[in-house]
Amino acid sequence: MYAIITFICGLLFGLGLAFSEMTNPAVVLGFLDVFGNWNPSLIIVMASAIAVGMIGYLIKGKRLAPFVASKWQVPTLRQIDSKLIIGSALFGIGWGISGYCPGPGLTALVNNPSEGIYFVIALIVGSAAHHFQTRAVKM
C-alpha cells in the first residue's frame, strides 16, 4: 500500500509541475525576474503548495501516525547554520541560472533533453561532491 500511495503522490506532483508550467524554465525564470519582465503566475502555484502543506500539518496535529507509515517524518532541526544558508544559496543560484530545480529538471530529460542532460549531470556531480565532502568531514 505504501508503494502505491507513494506512486500516486509522485504522479500527482509531476502532473502539478507540468500543469503549472514549473517544468518550463522560461516561465520559472520569468517569475524570478522581479525587476525585468516579471511573470507573477507562479504565485498561485506557491500559494497552492503552502495551502497543501498547511493541510498536511493540520492532519499531523490530529493523527498519531500517517495513514500508511508508522511515524511522521518531520524535520526536527530548528537552527539556522552555515550549511543551511550555503545550501539554500547554491540551490537558488542554480535555479536562477538554469530555471530548473531537481523535480522539473528530471522532466527536462524528456521535455528538453539537450538542456536537461546538462542539468542532470550537474545535479549528480553536485550531489556526489556533497556526499564525499560530508563523508570526509565525518572521518
Rank of each mutant, 00 (worst) to 15 (best):
L12Q: 10
W95L: 11
Y100A: 01
Y57S: 10
I97V: 13
G53A: 06
I80V: 15
N24I: 10
E21G: 11
G87T: 07
T107M: 10
L32M: 14
W72F: 11
V52N: 02
A51C: 05
I80Q: 15
G92W: 04
E21M: 15
S70N: 12
I44P: 00
M54P: 00
I55N: 04
S48T: 12
F19N: 12
L58C: 10
R63E: 14
L64S: 15
I55M: 15
V34W: 13
S48G: 12
Y118D: 00
I59K: 01
I80F: 15
W72T: 10
S48L: 12
G87V: 11
V45L: 05
G92N: 03
V27T: 08
W95V: 04
A89W: 10
T76P: 02
G94F: 02
M54E: 09
F35R: 13
G10E: 02
G16S: 11
A51Y: 04
S70D: 14
M54V: 14
G30P: 02
V110Y: 12
F119S: 02
K83R: 15
S20P: 03
I50C: 05
V120D: 05
N24V: 10
G61N: 08
D33I: 11
G61K: 06
I50Y: 06
M22N: 11
P113W: 01
G56F: 09
D81N: 13
V52T: 07
V68L: 14
G10F: 07
L29P: 01
N24W: 05
S41F: 07
C101S: 12
T107N: 00
L77V: 08
K62Y: 08
G61D: 05
M46E: 09
I43G: 02
P25M: 04
W72E: 12
L12V: 12
V74R: 01
L84P: 04
I117R: 13
M54F: 14
Y57A: 09
A69R: 06
K60P: 01
I121K: 00
V45S: 03
V74F: 05
S88F: 13
G56I: 06
T23K: 05
S70V: 09
L84V: 11
V45G: 00
G94Q: 03
